[in-house]
Design a binder for these strands. Structure first.
Length: 493
RNA sequence: CGGGGUGUAGCGUAGCCCGGUAUCGCGCCACAUUUGGGAUGUGGAGGUCGUAGGUUCGAAUCCUGCCACCCCGACCA
């Protein structure tokens, strides 16, 4: 284990990459653009999954599973959908290998060419809607509320651990409804769930908004999103919820008999969050000492490190530690006891700081004598001495965990607030973007042309039109044409 | 995919310009002393120098192709 992480201020990208690897979250694999998610990283993802899954089920959704492969012809049924994804699809053309005659290894058997190529799903709308055609006949079959946890593949040009990998893990919800209003309500509901998850569990404040036409999902009539701000001033799209209108229903002929006896196309939504959330979590809170994890998603919330000389002392300390662990676990607090004698305490302290464990307890002979514990918190890197009699340990730690969860949220919230700037002129726009970055709240004339021009000139894109946008008469920061409200610009991941 | 950079032990590196089979640190193994913020000493193991060719008596070093990774761009969850 090498010491010292690169500094965020010196090289943010390098810091991020090194952090991901050194904190044992993930590493690159032999396959280009694909990562190996390591046990510690995966257990954070599992925590995210568990909470999201619970929230989906509480809102009436059920999980199902659809195939990895999609017939090529399916993809082209929805015109804008194929246009959006065609450039990044992995294609299966053969189903068999054979030994090369010259003994050089295995080769693709040219005899085993598929009649119709299969696409490795970049997203599952097409295969799911082709299935929904058989599931939906009547208004009694609606709404259909399905989610799937899956892997998808998008052949991206440039990849980054968690933020953009060729294969990634996600969930994709796909729902079908009898009315436009109901589908739109579902779209909004899921965006709200994502926002709630992000703020409550990831301790990451997000802006809820809708995408401009050009940033919309391929095949959607409306895309809602949550946008978060990272420590380097770049925005990250953390989740999207799409109102699909009747686009996929029309493409796959999914109609239902109405109560009144008519025959209508159903209305659809789809929504997803991915392992990219891991990237957001890492970049939002961590510091130059390593990861900082919100207690609600940490694989374990508390680590106990014994300080001892010899077996005898360790045995005495362990008795007290077991007692503490039982109390903490009873209170629903996850705790790890690291009594390995292969590493020294100082080494362990540094290790758990790197891994972002929210609370560390150290217990040595001095503590046994004085009836104290040393409690250190990861977010502030402060330590305190705690008297056993002061209050029940579970109450103490429970309170501290809440405080940390709240503290890192507040810190991220303040950061975003300090890095959201209202700009009113083109000069100001360019200057703030250059010198400060972050979110820029500015008037926009509503045209794709202006949006495109601004992107071309500054690399900044419209992250979203915030849902809480206030009506305000102004002029577009670039074109000078009238505008009725501010939108959020930023450079994005 | 365009521009730039880097590939030498598990990790980080020296050597490359000026060819003669590899340096140092961390980590790893053994033993001893250690254990309240990344311990110390002694001994030891570990390398087809990214890969495939070429030049040469001889290639980590020179030449060509390929691959991977990183950074910047275009694209994207």
């Amino acid at each position: 284990m090498s010491k010292g992480l690169p500094k965020r201020s010196e090289d943010y990208s390098l810091w991020y990459n090194e952090l991901v690897k050194r904190a044992d979250l993930a590493e690159n694999s032999p396959v280009r653009g694909c990562m190996v998610i390591k046990p510690y990283g995966y257990s954070i993802w599992e925590k995210m999954q568990a909470e999201l899954d619970r929230m989906f089920k509480e809102t009436g959704h059920s999980n199902a599973y659809f195939p990895l492969f999609i017939p090529k012809s399916f993809l082209s049924k929805e015109a804008s959908h194929v246009e959006g994804f065609a450039k990044e699809c992995a294609v299966v053309t053969h189903y068999r290998l054979k030994n090369a005659e010259d003994g050089s290894g295995v080769i693709v058997d040219p005899e085993a060419k598929l009649e119709e190529e299969l696409i490795v799903r970049p997203t599952s709308e097409t295969v799911i809607w082709s299935t929904y055609k058989n599931w939906i006949q009547s208004y009694r079959d609606l709404p259909l509320l399905v989610n799937q946890w899956a892997n998808v593949v998008r052949w991206e040009m440039r990849t980054r651990l968690f933020l953009r990998t060729t294969e990634f893990l996600w969930q994709e919800g796909h729902t079908a409804h009898a009315t436009s209003d109901e589908a739109m309500a579902e779209t909004v509901q899921m965006m709200n769930i994502y926002a709630q998850f992000s703020e409550e569990f990831m301790a990451l404040p997000v802006v809820k908004g809708k995408k401009t036409e050009s940033e919309r999902f391929a095949g959607a009539d409306e895309t809602l999103c949550i946008e978060a701000l990272m420590q380097d001033g770049k925005a990250l799209q953390a989740g999207t919820s799409h109102f699909l209108g009747q686009n996929f229903a029309k493409a796959f002929e999914v109609k239902f008999a109405t109560k009144e006896g008519g025959l209508e196309y159903v209305w659809g939504t789809s929504w997803g969050v991915s392992t990219r959330l891991m990237g957001a979590l890492i970049m939002a809170h961590s510091d130059d000492n390593g990861l900082v994890l919100p207690p609600k998603l940490a694989p374990f919330q508390v680590v106990i490190v014994p300080i001892y000389r010899g077996e005898e002392e360790l045995a005495m300390i362990s008795v007290k530690v077991k007692e503490i662990m039982a109390e903490l676990r009873k209170a629903g607090i996850s705790v790890k006891y690291d009594d390995r004698d292969t590493q020294k305490p100082g080494w362990k302290f540094a290790e758990y700081e790197l891994k972002g464990v929210p609370v560390r307890i150290a217990l040595g002979p001095r503590d046994l004598e004085n009836k104290t514990l040393e409690i250190a918190r990861r977010d502030t890197l402060t330590k305190e001495s705690f008297q056993w009699e002061e209050m029940p340990i579970a109450q103490k730690i429970g309170g501290l965990l809440d405080e940390i969860q709240e503290g890192i949220y507040q810190k991220a919230f303040d950061f975003r607030k300090d890095n959201t700037t209202e700009v009113n002129s083109w000069e100001e726009f360019k200057q703030v973007l250059e010198e400060k970055a972050g979110f820029l709240s500015a008037h926009w004339d509503g045209t794709p042309e202006t949006e495109e021009k601004i992107k071309e000139l500054t690399k900044a894109t419209i992250r979203c039109i915030p849902l809480d946008q206030l009506p305000e008469q102004g002029v577009c920061v670039y074109s000078g044409k009238p505008s009725s409200g501010r939108v959020l610009f930023a450079k994005a991941y």
